[in-house]
Design a protein around this nucleic acid. Structure first.
Lengths: 146, 146
DNA sequence: TTATTTAATTATCATTTGATAACAACATAT
DNA sequence: ATATGTTGTTATCAAATGATAATTAAATAA
């Protein structure tokens, strides 16, 4: 069969697995007043930061009014903050506040603990292989086509 | 730094990338009357099939009443069907109907097309590397710990 | 200058999804 | 036989999210 088709099918399967693993790592995690969407935005912010409202809207597929609403709530909760753009006064750069960073550090610690249980028996040389494999995927198919 | 910590951080990044890529492949895809959750269940069914209602509920983190409601809607739309269990008459095994399979084949064709555009310039030997990398991940960290 | 575009906000309503209680049918343990 | 647990259903309400219109302010194009 065509190699590209094979890789596509493998990609679908790994996307499914990644989704499933994320679900298992975050299941029963205390949300401390955040709705699922708000938490999702927080996770996104901890990876892409700082970022404007329009970019969040575009990347996550949330309309501008709804993005504005959720960021407002997160800001009111003290979890993120708005920074004015130096050259364009319309733009707002959003980043996690110190409290928001702490909150996400907790979340990732929770996930990490779940992950550690999962890979308990895996040998170091196998893990090195895994590490190289992930690097390879990030450098090719997951690379952002700008 | 500890290898396991490194792999965890890489894992978080690949989960994010996978989520992002899935979003880009399905963005603007015609949903033909399916809600996001219903489509998500359809994707799940096309991977795990047949499966009981309780298993869908457990795996996807949807309560039984809500799972029942959504499966009922999908069944009414002719996209999936219920099969009685031979030994336990309470159980319902759910699978995609022929129409449901056709619908998902369309969905995957849509995604595949997007994916092909994305990897247009990637050489075959690089793709083979990607393929091996995915296999390695599926065999290790994404393997289901039963 | 004036028009047009872009970034963000507020308000509002519809839809989707989540949560809970009450129930029915069947299986299994005591 | 009776109790208890499991699987799934229906109904209902609450919460979260999506969608749209109207608005403000600032940048940019004409």
């Amino acid at each position: 069969m065509d190699l590209k088709i094979t890789v596509f099918q493998q990609l679908v399967s790994i996307i499914t697995s990644a989704h499933q693993l994320h679900y298992e790592m975050t299941k029963d995690m205390p949300m401390q007043g955040l709705t699922p969407l708000q938490y999702e935005i927080m996770e996104f912010l901890s990876v892409e930061q700082p970022i404007t409202l329009s970019q969040i809207s575009e990347c996550k597929g949330i309309s501008m009014p709804n993005t504005s609403r959720e960021i407002k709530k997160l800001t009111e909760l003290g979890l993120c903050e708005k920074i004015e753009d130096a050259t364009d006064r319309r733009k707002q750069h959003i980043r996690l506040s110190a409290q928001g960073e702490a909150r996400m550090a907790e979340a990732f610690a929770f996930m990490r603990s779940r992950f550690m249980d999962r890979i308990e028996g895996v040998a170091d040389d196998e893990l090195s292989e895994v590490s190289r494999s992930i690097e390879r995927l990030q450098a090719t198919i997951f690379r952002t086509t700008s």
